[in-house]
Design a protein around this nucleic acid. Structure first.
Length: 414
RNA sequence: GCCCCCAUCGACUAGCGGUCCAGGUCGCGGCCCUUUCAAGGCCGUAGCACGGGUUCGAAUCCCGUUGGGGGCACCA
């Protein structure tokens, strides 16, 4: 995996790395992380840490310490000088250019594209070392592939046109050619390259939006790859055992946020309540909510089946943690119900969901109201919204005192 | 402009010449369940870009057209 340390990790890049990782893990190979920082001017120190952290979050790991392209500048320079000596490269305005073949074709069998050919006559001699002595990516990268014994280069298809140059460089230094696999880009919903205006594009943004790492792993794997025509939900281990480069599609895939949401809901619901609570508390902490973990834990069972992203929790269950402002319009016609509820809920011996439900249903019956119309004002009074977790459980959790006070307050508005 | 690549429901895809009047998943629509919202269950909607070939037979192979993407740096 060879990111350039220029900024946050784009979701498309993560997908490409995911394919590298799945392949390496399945084959029992090594997955190497190489930071391509030959262009020192663009280097952002923090970006490297960012990249590592982002990859770690989704569970993609690498073997050994990351290497930095810049550390091998001298080796690259020596290699270039050797090529000049051999007549395979030449100086030009202080820079060094590599001599590409003048005729014939450079071709390779791409694992996802099949055979790709370029007419050599079409290819210009590329600069491989700048006049200031720094090697160019297109030179350093294939050399490092050779030096590191890279067997498989799995990267974005924007590198297809770099490949013939890199192949010829590897041949010139007498190295073994790696197997190339160029995976397609990811598009936004309009079929254009995924960008900011489509929504989240950095992996960190998805994390902040309340997506689970297992969702991202599963979803991203399915963008351009499928084990068969049926399976959509796969664990990390299943992904590893079923992945195959040959089945990676050669056409670009669109990123579908709706399907992502669905899948995240599935994973959220699958979690044990302990795990669910843990993730919820963690997410809230990471995103600036200083809410009582104990209370969060008690509300978790009420929301687990209801929300698709952890970020929906504050809006959905926030009424447990602070004051609410019910909309009088939504309380309309509920005066009788509210008044009756206040008296009855103040008197029932056991303040648990079951008793609360029985009591409220009794009132509704007495008033000749359908449950639907009867419970709405209560719901609005207690949760501040027409949409909420289960009403009776919510009331129980809130406690008699707080519930009654909210119902009383609402009654004065209705 | 030149080079390279891509093309199955709205989306992700299965399909690698007959088992496909094209299957799965998301979305969407309807119904059921129901205290709201979800979840869940059932049913449904919708596609082989177009035109030529090849073949007894094409979504599958070939050519062209159209459309889309990427690349053409002393960036990566």
């Amino acid at each position: 995996m060879a990111p350039s340390p220029t900024g946050f990790l784009h979701i498309g890049g993560v997908r490409t790395f995911l394919f590298n990782w799945l392949f390496a893990r399945q084959q029992g190979g090594e997955n190497r992380l190489r930071i391509e920082n030959t262009d020192t001017t663009r280097e952002v120190a923090e970006a490297v840490d960012q990249i590592k952290q982002s990859l770690s979050w989704v569970g993609i790991d690498w073997d050994g310490e990351p290497t930095f392209q810049l550390d091998r500048m001298d080796d690259c320079r020596r290699a270039a000088e050797q090529l000049v000596t051999e007549g395979k490269a030449y100086e030009d305005d202080g820079a060094i250019r590599f001599r590409m073949p003048d005729d014939g074709v450079t071709a390779w069998d791409d694992v996802v594209r099949g055979r790709v050919e370029f007419q050599n006559a079409q290819l210009a001699d590329p600069v491989i070392v700048r006049s200031d002595g720094r090697p160019i990516y297109n030179f350093a990268s294939p050399l490092e592939d050779v030096w590191d014994g890279i067997t498989h280069v799995i990267r974005g298809d924007d590198h297809i046109s770099n490949t013939p140059t890199q192949i010829n460089i590897i041949r010139a230094v007498g190295g073994d050619l790696p197997t190339y696999a160029h995976v397609p880009n990811i598009f936004g919903q309009d079929g254009k390259k995924l960008s900011k205006r489509h929504g989240a594009t950095g992996i960190d943004e998805f994390r902040a939006a309340g997506y689970l790492p297992e969702t991202m792993l599963n979803f991203l794997a399915l963008l351009g790859w499928a084990p068969d025509g049926e399976t959509t939900l796969m664990s990390r281990d299943e992904l590893i055992s079923r992945f195959s480069l040959e089945r990676v599609s050669s056409s670009p895939a669109q990123f579908d946020y709706a399907k992502l949401d669905w899948m995240n809901g599935v994973y959220l619901r699958e979690l044990s309540i302990e795990d669910y609570t843990h993730r919820l508390v963690l997410w809230l902490g990471e995103n600036g909510y200083d809410w009582d973990a104990e209370l969060v834990a008690r509300t978790a069972p009420l929301v687990q089946d209801k929300i698709a992203k952890l970020s929906e929790y504050p809006a959905f269950a926030g009424f447990f943690f602070g004051d609410i402002e019910p909309d009088p319009a939504q309380l309309e016609g509920g005066a009788d119900m509210l008044a009756a509820a206040e008296t009855v809920l103040g008197k029932i011996p056991e303040f648990d969901a079951e008793s609360i439900e029985a009591a409220l249903r009794g009132i509704a019956d007495g008033l000749g109201l359908k449950p639907r119309q009867a419970f709405q004002p209560i719901r609005v009074a207690v949760t501040g919204s027409k949409i909420s977790p289960g009403l009776f459980e919510s009331i129980e959790l809130l406690g008699r005192e707080e519930s009654l006070s909210r119902i009383r307050a609402a009654a004065s508005l209705a």
